[in-house]
């Protein structure tokens, strides 16, 4: 008996289509409610082109003489905050990542605790972390470094835990069978397999942290953001434009650097 030629082939089942439709409908409904209730003053929008033109006319000509005087040191500080903060994040994220990998630590409670730390680190924005640490340590690069470190734990730890969970169990079994102590098993069994992913994550996070450490100074956590904040408050727009340009250049250079290293080691 051959199948009926009139049989209808469909890519999705009825319930799948219904679920997709529900998602789109829900988003459309949320969008229309938001558009109706958000408080936007239309006059401000009509005024925007004039304001933007005014902004650019104030930004030009750029005050390049300010770079050696006020920006360079702050930029170095920003890069140090980003790098030291990322190193701090690694130191904290390695143990938390190990706790979160359920093939290494077999206590669900500890796994869950590690997940909780990782999620709260990621869900609080870097500027909010910066505010918290400025309140704790006072304004300055110390607050910025700790902020970058705490903010990055979530990202580095989560990806490190995932890399550990994907490790091939063969070498681990061999090491355990030969009676290696736990630390050796980790160092020679897990680490070599997870290391490439780990360094990739480290570089990627450093790249992100360069961007983030450029702005946390706006709330007083050191680096170029503090210089930007001062220039903004004093309406030195021709300095603001130099600062923005130098942030742009540093961010692009950091990205090129990271891409070059990644190509080499991975």
């Amino acid at each position: 008996m051959s199948p009926s030629p009139l049989r209808k082939w469909e890519r999705f089942t009825f319930s799948e289509r219904l679920a997709r439709f529900a998602v789109f409908l829900g988003f459309a409904a949320a969008l229309s409610i938001s558009l109706r209730s958000v408080q936007i003053i239309p006059e401000f929008l009509y005024d925007a082109p004039t304001q933007v033109a005014d902004l650019f006319s104030r930004m030009w000509p750029m005050d390049f003489a300010y770079y050696p005087a006020g920006i360079h040191d702050a930029m170095m500080e920003t890069l140090h905050i980003a790098t030291l903060g990322t190193l701090l994040a690694i130191v904290m994220a390695i143990p938390i990542g190990i706790l979160g990998a359920n093939n290494i630590v077999h206590f669900p409670l500890l796994n869950w605790l590690s997940k909780l730390i990782l999620v709260s680190s990621r869900s609080v924005n870097s500027l909010v972390w910066a505010l918290l640490f400025v309140a704790v340590f006072g304004p300055g690069p110390l607050a910025g470094t700790v902020c970058i470190g705490f903010r990055s734990i979530g990202f580095v730890g989560k990806l490190f835990a995932e890399a550990l969970e994907e490790v091939d169990p063969g070498p681990i079994e061999a090491l355990t069978a030969s009676g290696a102590p736990w630390f050796s098993v980790f160092l020679k069994g897990y680490w070599p397999q997870a290391a490439p992913a780990f360094w990739g994550v480290f570089l990627f996070r450093w790249d992100i942290n360069v961007r983030e450490s450029a702005v946390i100074g706006l709330v007083g956590a050191g680096g170029i953001g503090m210089v930007l904040d001062t220039a903004l408050n004093l309406f030195f727009w021709n300095r603001v434009s130099v600062i923005l340009l130098s942030i742009f250049v540093v961010v692009i250079l950091a990205e090129l650097f990271v891409t070059a290293i990644r190509k080499r080691i991975i």
Binding site: I41, F44, A48, L244, I247, F248, V251
Partner: peptide, 28 residues
């Protein structure tokens, strides 16, 4: 696209607050 990516949203927010004033429009 590169320009949109290189600046942290806060920097865009500062510029848009100057352009369209305080309020949710700048955030959007």
């Amino acid at each position: 696209i590169a320009l949109c990516r290189s600046f942290h949203p806060v920097i865009f927010a500062i510029l848009f607050v100057k352009a369209v004033g305080f309020g949710p429009l700048a955030g959007i």
